[in-house]
Simulated assay, not measured.
Amino acid sequence: MSAPALESSRIVSDTYRAVMRHLPTGVAAVCATDPITGVQNGMVVGTFASLSMEPALVTFSVMHSSASWPKIATSGTFSVSLLAEDQQQVCKALSAKGEDKLRNIAWSESAWGTPHLNGSLAWFDCRIEQQFTAGDHVVVIAGVLDMTPAERASSPLIFHGGRFGSFREAA
C-alpha cells in the first residue's frame, strides 16, 4: 500500500510551529568573510547537525529569504561556532538584520580564514558541497575541513519553546 499524497493544506503553519516548539534545538553561528569586501558576515541556525562521518559532513537549513546566507555562501567556506549558554547576546546580534554583524563580537580568524566566535563550545571550518531548495528553506550540506573543541567547559545554548536556555544534567 502506498502512502497518501502530501497535502500541505492539511497542515496549518501556526499549528506546525506550535508543535515544533516542543523540540529543543542547539544554537550555532555560521560565519564567513566576504572574499571581495573583507567584511565578516554571520547568522544563527537552529538546524545544525552531523550528517556523515565518512566523509565528515554537516548540514543545516536556512530560510530562502535570508539576506545573510547569500553573503556567506559566496565565500565557499565558512565557520560554525557552537554557542555556549552565556552567548545569548551573540545570538541576538547575529539574528538582527543589517551589515557587519560581527562588529561588536569577539572572534579570531581560523587557519581557513573564517571567523571563530570567541567563547564558543566548538568550531567547525566547512566547505559548501551542496545546496538545494526544500519548501521555504535552502538545505546546505558542507564538508568539514577542520574542527576544534573549546578550551572551557560550559553547557550549550539551547532554544526551546520560544526561549533560550541551557542543558543541565539530572542529579
Score class of each variant (00 low, 15 high):
72 I>F: 01
169 E>G: 13
139 V>W: 06
36 I>S: 14
158 I>D: 02
128 I>F: 02
162 G>D: 13
92 K>G: 08
83 L>F: 12
131 Q>F: 06
31 C>K: 01
115 P>C: 12
105 I>C: 04
8 S>P: 08
154 S>T: 08
99 E>M: 12
122 A>V: 01
58 V>I: 15
95 S>N: 14
85 E>I: 10
36 I>G: 11
16 Y>I: 04
168 R>P: 05
31 C>S: 07
145 L>C: 03
155 S>M: 13
6 L>S: 10
153 A>C: 11
9 S>F: 11
159 F>C: 07
82 L>N: 01
36 I>D: 15
165 G>F: 03
108 S>H: 03
94 L>T: 04
133 T>E: 14
15 T>W: 14
142 A>R: 00
67 A>Y: 07
51 L>V: 11
76 G>F: 00
99 E>Y: 09
12 V>P: 05
119 G>Q: 05
119 G>T: 06
12 V>C: 12
121 L>F: 08
68 S>M: 07
163 R>K: 15
35 P>C: 13
72 I>T: 00
149 P>H: 08
21 R>W: 06
76 G>M: 04
144 V>Q: 01
132 F>A: 08
56 A>E: 13
158 I>H: 01
54 E>H: 14
58 V>L: 11
138 V>Q: 14
104 N>Y: 09
155 S>K: 05
144 V>E: 02
94 L>G: 06
68 S>C: 06
94 L>I: 08
26 G>Y: 03
86 D>G: 07
101 K>F: 13
8 S>W: 12
136 D>F: 02
9 S>G: 07
25 T>H: 12
171 A>N: 12
122 A>F: 01
103 R>G: 03
109 E>C: 08
159 F>T: 05
107 W>G: 05
134 A>F: 07
117 L>F: 06
15 T>Y: 12
87 Q>K: 07
120 S>V: 06
143 G>N: 12
103 R>F: 09
7 E>G: 05
50 S>A: 15
119 G>V: 04
69 W>H: 03
142 A>C: 01
130 Q>N: 15
